[in-house]
Design a protein around this nucleic acid. Sequence first.
RNA 1: GCGGAUAUGGUGAAGUGGUAUCAUAGGAGGUUUCCAACCUUUUGUCGUGGGUUCAACUCCCGCUAUCCGCACCA
Length: 556
Amino acid sequence: MQPNAERLERMSGMLKRRGVILPAFEIHGGAKGLYDFGPVGGRLRNRVNQTWINHWLALGNIVELSCPTVTPYAVLEASGHVGEFSDFMTVCKGCEEASRADTLLEDYHPNPDALTKDELQTLLDASNPPCPTCDAQDWTEITAQNLMFNTTIGAGSSGRAGFLRPETAQGMFTSFPALLRHNRDRLPFGAIQVGKGYRNEISPRQGMIRLREFNMAELEYFFNPHEDQNHDFSPWMETKLSLVPDGQSVLEATIPSALESNIIRHSTVGYFMAQTYDFLVKVGIDPARLRFRQHEADEMAHYASDCWDAEILGSYGWIECVGIAHRGCYDLEAHEKATGKTLRARREFSEPKVVEIDGWTINGATAGPAFRALAGAVKHALEALDASASFPAKIKLTNGELVEVLPEHVKRVQRTETITGEWYIPHVVEPAFGIDRIIWHILDHAYDDESKEGDDYTVLRLSDHVAPVDFCVFPLFEKDGMGEMARQLHRKLCARPGLVSVYDSSGSIGRRYARADEIGVPRCLTVDHQSIEDQTVTVRDRDTGEQHRVHIDELV
RNA sequence: GCGGAUAUGGUGAAGUGGUAUCAUAGGAGGUUUCCAACCUUUUGUCGUGGGUUCAACUCCCGCUAUCCGCACCA
């Protein structure tokens, strides 16, 4: 543990010194749980994000969204976050002491913890309990406090309550009608979003691991639960992953075999586990320090029916960096209920269903005047009866009222309906990536300060996909035209979209290689005397130190 | 939120009731034909706010941040 802690200190120092990751707002004293990606880290973060986006767009049925971080209260109330993430507070106007509303109302309700904000407010207004501190009975309006950042959308009395989003997912669920239309009503499809999320953590810890503002990248994959997804697992037939099934010890298995033995319960979850494995390895996570752990039933989030975390082993132990959750129809159904809007897709049956309808309904001309306001409820009750019913009869309505229905109020209904399909709520599998945690582990796995025969020498062995700088350009000496030629080459490289080059002419050549290695530049280009003669430069590889000459036209 | 430790140039450290030392890094110049070489020169520091004192980086108190447990959270 001790050498590990020292390595962690050296690494954090380097990350700060070289502008990869720094405490935010440090000149003002800093702020807990908030970090800057500096001049090097900014590029790294961008490349991880872009690699992530490209990884999913390659599937062919994925679109990218960007939704607001400021989110109205109602959205997160519908999703369950207000209930799950918040405590409801009210402040005594007598002594300014804040109390939890559900605690105050324990004497007035069997389970106030389960109430919504509005229900608590109603109950608080009705019961008006005394303040436990000063016995006053005068409370402010209930506000939600806790893990989500509260904000007000708009000014003054016209402002609406809102939050900074705790996850990007809800915007993708609320955009479902637009997504479905874009995909011309055909499932499956996915939506991805990369962006910031916010959680007002009580106690952020462990550097980048628990942040108050963090980068997340989420994919919502919508599919028809009645249909086999037929995922192509052929690329992963031989790839063994470390799996930790619910409450059991670790085992090595391929995804297809784990699906076969029902350790992974759903093929779409398994498919995204495999894709997630590929992504993490692509950006430089060591497969030997990667495992997938299944959530036990009691730790499952409120929306999930099965969940696997990708955990990565680093300086802080095994840390969950990706959650792959089967959310079922939870979210779309929740937003449907809250809004009354339809968030469904249509599926046609392979054979139309022919349904014999044989029962009763009201005769509007007579039942309408007879039952007036109750006519709708009577119709509903009658249609639930089967064909054998006879009239007159006493019918119980849903509101408990008993009405007498006479033969002239009713009509027989006998017809045949052909039903060609139905509307259903799509199911969702959600791989959710904590980008900051992944970046931390990319750095952790890439950081090597024990090479070069025991001497302290630091190399960041980053994957080419995410290295923040592609090339360093060095003149061997800044004279005889070498400096000028190197500068020109540097500018040419920088002019290429997406390419980053750094020019460095100070110090010995060895020192400059060392500086480049420290931030993980994969290749250094050195202009020497021969370059002036024949327009070639040496290309030096970060990991092997090997050099070969290349004509500059091949580079740009 | 509770308990413990810590805070000195960019980084890593030393030190004292009388405004600070070293290494390394950075800039400029020189030297050098490819892996942190060398020479000259230069920049830059006591987390923050109070208190005690003639004088506080040093002693005391608060705050902020960092690290480690516990709790919380996914």
